[in-house]
């Protein structure tokens, strides 16, 4: 221990709060940790690789003829819908993995370090945007292979992709909250699926809303997922930008983060 010497506590400058810049820095370091983990265990990317491919193929060929007369005409409807469904569902894994991660001893060290409390959570969520990006790219790529040529052009496809990634990141705070309060990883999976499955399917993602009964139409119109799907469709199919659906999606995402980020951090700090 020749070159290690201890700085006495009296000569340290100490403060009891964490600055915003430190919180951001800590979160990015934790995101770096998340990326390293993904690189070490690439098999955890299986779901974001195969789900977009299989689901896009499956739903397009099952519903295409029935909904739009043929597969080609269905693509502008299904690709944005499937994109939102796939990427949002992927955000469940964030909560599940967070639960598994928190059970490990290393989280004790994170808690005992003088870092921003939000950093281990925000970092994990930030790193998972890589997963959303993979799912987004693969969904559009599948669509392209099947003959989908969005009218909005490449620029709008990219913007729509970013919109979906941002919204999924926001939604992942909900599942992070479940991850922090739940006892086991499988229960996180269970609760999350129970909420997300109806939300994604009771929307305009796969079929035109006017074929549904009146009471269901009411729910589908209120469903934030529908607004996100509409916003993406407008962007990639007609280059429409800034409609009410886009505003609702972004405001909704902001509200989710504003509500669930503090809730999650508080639950995380209280948990022993």
């Amino acid at each position: 221990m020749s070159n290690v010497s201890i700085t006495p506590e009296i000569r340290r400058s100490l403060k009891n709060h964490t600055s915003l810049s430190q919180s951001v820095r800590n979160s990015f370091t934790m995101a770096y940790r998340g990326l390293l983990k993904i690189r070490r265990t690439p098999e955890q990317l299986f779901d974001v690789t195969f789900q977009p491919i299989i689901f896009t193929l499956m739903f397009t060929y099952i519903f295409g003829g029935a909904v739009s007369g043929n597969v080609y005409n269905y693509l502008p409807i299904i690709i944005p819908g499937n994109l939102v469904q796939t990427v949002i569902t992927t955000s469940i894994v964030t909560g599940v993995q967070l639960r598994e991660d928190m059970d490990k001893g290393v989280f004790d060290r994170f808690k005992s370090l003088p870092i921003a409390r939000i950093a281990p959570l925000a970092g994990a969520l930030l790193a998972d945007t890589v997963r959303y990006t993979i799912a987004t790219v693969l969904t559009f790529a599948m669509g392209y292979i099947m003959g989908y040529r969005p009218n909005g052009g490449f620029g709008h496809v990219v913007l729509a992709g970013i919109l979906v990634i941002v919204c999924s990141w926001a939604v992942s705070w909900i599942f992070a909250f479940f991850g922090v309060i739940a006892r086991t990883a499988s229960s996180v999976q269970g609760i999350s699926m129970l909420i997300l499955f109806p939300l994604t399917f009771l929307s305009n993602a796969y079929v035109p809303v006017d074929t549904m009964p009146k009471w269901l139409q009411w729910f589908v119109h209120a469903n934030p997922i529908s607004h996100l799907v509409s916003a993406v469709r407008d962007m990639v199919n007609t280059s429409a930008f800034g409609g009410s659906d886009l505003v609702i999606s972004l405001v909704g995402a902001a509200i989710i983060v504003a509500l669930f980020a503090p809730l999650t951090v508080r639950a995380y700090m209280r948990r022993t």
Binding site: K37, R40, G105, F107, R109
Partner: peptide, 15 residues
């Protein structure tokens, strides 16, 4: 002011 070494190694297994 503290360093904590837990009963079960508090390091990241996958790294």
């Amino acid at each position: 002011l503290i360093g904590v070494t837990g009963q079960y190694a508090s390091v990241d297994e996958s790294l």
